[in-house]
Amino acid sequence: MTGYARAAGNVPGASFVCEVKSVNGRGLDIRLRLAPGMDALEGDIRQLIGKAAARGSITFNLSVDRDGAGGELVVNKQALDTVLAAIADLSTRIDASPPSLDGILGLRGVLDQHDHPLSPEAEEQLVAAILSCAGQALTQLGASRRQEGAQIATVLLGQLDAIEALVARAEVHPARSRETILARLRQQVADIAADIAIADDRLLQEALLLATKADIREELDRLTAHIASARQLIKGGGAVGRRLDFLAQEFNREANTLCSKANAVELTSIGLDLKATIDQLREQVQNIE
């Protein structure tokens, strides 16, 4: 499921922003981008995300600005030596004015800003505030995902209605009756061997055998049960994506069996429509938690 949330906070000596977004995924994939020095929070944040979501690819960003703590600029001597060596080498090849001091210091990596560390008490307060902020962002994300889930639920219920209508068509299709199968068998015998007399009892036995092989009663009953289960899961809410995914596979299995047993073009057509609608259902199920 998709969603985005952002929360911000501050404590004496620092301010911070937590951003979290999610996109569709069959499992739970967590990606963290934490501010420098905040790696110790990875386990706690992963735990918070695991409690808030069961599926989806979730990216969590944390930025921290220690603006209130002050700091100092420090020359990175190794980077400066590398720059000066490059300038000396280039000056022997290119006739140009030497670079100014402010130009050299403006090069990335030559000057580093080192923030004064917060006191242990302030660091503890900062960590607690960041985790609280992360919880707020995840709560907002959950609300966004639930809103999307409600919209998808409407689509899923509509697809279940379509599946139920197709099951009802198969239920009453005349090709399932023994009388229809017997009439078709008589016609086939007449076309193949018009001059051969076959006893009605024999034809009835063959018709009964064909009707047994083509019986889709169990498949229709199971499809009806799966429809009821899926509706119950959707209306119950919560993290039902995996269970609906399993049901969608069962739907597809029954539709395949129905197609293999179908003894008429019309029934096969209904089975293919079932498979197409079930595929649409499965695609939507991948998008929910």
Rank of each mutant, 00 (worst) to 15 (best):
G50N: 04
N76P: 10
L131Q: 00
V64F: 10
A88Y: 01
N10H: 14
E148D: 13
A53I: 01
V23N: 03
G56L: 05
S97Y: 00
L41Y: 05
V83H: 05
Q147K: 08
V11D: 04
S57N: 11
L62H: 02
T82M: 14
E19L: 06
G109C: 09
S119M: 10
M38Q: 13
V17H: 04
A122F: 04
P117M: 06
G9N: 10
D89I: 03
V110I: 14
P98G: 15
P12F: 13
Q136H: 12
A40G: 13
G68Y: 11
G106P: 04
I130H: 02
R55I: 06
P117R: 06
I30C: 05
I130A: 11
R31E: 08
K51L: 13
L131P: 02
E121M: 09
L138H: 02
P117A: 15
S100R: 13
G13F: 12
G43V: 14
H114C: 09
R46Y: 04
L48V: 02
V110C: 08
A54F: 07
K51Q: 12
S100H: 05
G68V: 10
Q113G: 08
G142N: 12
Q113L: 14
L32G: 07
M38D: 02
Q147S: 13
P12E: 15
D115Q: 11
V64E: 00
V110T: 06
G13E: 07
G135W: 03
L111M: 14
G106D: 03
S132W: 00
K51S: 13
Q147F: 11
S119L: 13
L90S: 07
R26I: 11
I30P: 04
T139A: 15
L126W: 09
I104T: 03
C18A: 15
I49A: 12
